[in-house]
Amino acid sequence: MSEKKYSKEHEWVTIEGDVATIGITRHAAEMLGDVVFVELPEKGKNVEKEGQAGVVESTKAASDVYTPITGEITDTNQSIVDDPGAVNKDPEGAAWFFKIKIKNKSELDQLMSKADYDKFAKENPN
């Protein structure tokens, strides 16, 4: 599996072959607070980079989840739909959101390293 990369919309991405696994960062989960609802895209749906591809809700508000990668949704993590609290417990591991068959590998170059993301998140807390 590739090194984890990060987007400015607070998603993380790992790559295996031509499939990207995407979730929200620990920082994003902390900012949201207790996650109580998750909505995921349907399998087979084509999504565009920076397009909406899910919803997370805390007790306070609903937030869109964006995809940092263009492609087709090949799998979604139903376990976080059944237990939304898992997103707070292990946001960058077991609580991944969806997998995408990557259409355009050059999009990966626009993502940040962990060090760059940590700096970005510190400067852009929301």
């Binding site: 607070g33 207790d34 109580v36 805390s58 007790t59 306070k60």
Partner: peptide, 11 residues
């Protein structure tokens, strides 16, 4: 709006 343990815990 909340303290460190979170809204659900405070509730």
């Amino acid at each position: 709006v909340q303290y460190s343990s979170g809204i659900v815990d405070e509730h």
